[in-house]
Design a protein around this nucleic acid. Structure first.
Lengths: 188, 188
DNA sequence: ATACATAGCGGAGCAAGCCTCCGAAAAGGC
DNA sequence: GCCTTTTCGGAGGCTTGCTCCGCTATGTAT
């Protein structure tokens, strides 16, 4: 499975970078549903070239997101050392929320990939789920968070709230606080 | 503003009904993003006819949903008499959830209309919000539900969860229970 | 330096969906 | 049965996604 791949040809590499930059701009401006033809045009590259480098919209999104996902994973690892597992989890959920609201439409893209192993974003979703699951397990062990709750639940809930926040003005954070309350253990 | 409108011509009425039925089928099968051309075709009606009766996709959705919205409003009024305002609210939220999950894509359609007075679905959203707000006020007065929380919040949260439930298999109800816990007042 | 093999380019062109426009057809009042 | 008015319906224009393949640029071997 370890394919020896020679370095990209100079023109290929240049076009790849230009496309990535153009995509980032377009996503920031119009959301992840921005026209791919526009992205190719503003990267000054043919549409065929875009599709060769990124066969699907999701592949392009994945490439744009990649660093952010890595960062989130690193942050989760750091937070594992926190003295308060509950606070650590909530802190990370806020990071996750910030990430999911970077581009309009992103939450939808992630959500639709979460159970689709064929999607280029599937790997990112899995990373997020396991990162979250580790923090979650800690908080659950400390008795702070209800035990029925999975890493997948976390990612889904945050995405759902991020998505809701896109309609209306930035209520995502408030809604997150609201919902987060429901995740705590209760004395019944 | 009270326009006297003579009854629809026979052919118009017939086509209207056929379109409505075809739309219901298509929405059930492919979700609310089903092709309008397909709907017209399966109603055995020209595409122009569809657009005359329903100038936008949302107008068509609204027509399909109308009865359901009326029912939800009626249920809310009944539940106002319930001895337990908290249970009444939760019960109604479950009804609302059932409604929002009727067709794939519906939650998205509702959500995008909630702050768009130009949308044909805006009226339905408002009805839901006020229905919910009445039940909410009762439950808040009884001290069962946190006082910072609006009818709009309820509709948005339920829609967000319904949307999340579309990805994966029917977890909407479980997620609703989870989140509903967060809406209760807490002793801090 | 030159030539060659090939990775890479790019846009014409097809498909699918949305929506409009207007000549043809049907309805129903008289 | 006729005439006005409503309604029908699909051709056609537009946008967006995506593919295919002849042409070009690149890197390497000589």
């Amino acid at each position: 499975m370890t394919t020896v791949q020679r370095p990209m040809r100079a023109d290929a590499r240049r076009n790849y970078e230009r496309l990535l930059a153009a995509a980032r701009d377009a996503f920031a401006g119009q959301g992840t549903e921005a026209s791919l033809e526009d992205i190719a045009r503003s990267a000054e590259v043919g549409i065929g070239t875009l599709y060769r480098h990124f066969p699907t919209r999701r592949a392009l999104i994945e490439a744009v997101l990649h660093d952010g996902i890595v960062t989130l994973d690193a942050q989760a690892r750091e937070l594992l050392e926190s003295p308060s597992p509950e606070e650590a989890l909530l802190e990370w959920l806020r990071h996750l929320m910030a990430h999911a609201t970077t581009y309009r439409g992103l939450a939808a893209a992630l959500m639709s990939s979460i159970h689709d192993p064929g999607s280029e974003l599937y790997g990112s979703c899995e990373t997020l789920q396991t990162s979250g699951a580790r923090l979650l397990a800690n908080a659950q062990r400390a008795g702070a968070i209800r035990p029925d709750l999975t890493g997948t639940d976390l990612v889904k809930l945050v995405n759902a709230i991020a998505w809701a926040g896109e309609h209306g003005e930035n209520e995502a954070d408030r809604l997150l606080d609201l919902v987060a309350d429901g995740l705590r253990t209760r004395d019944r």
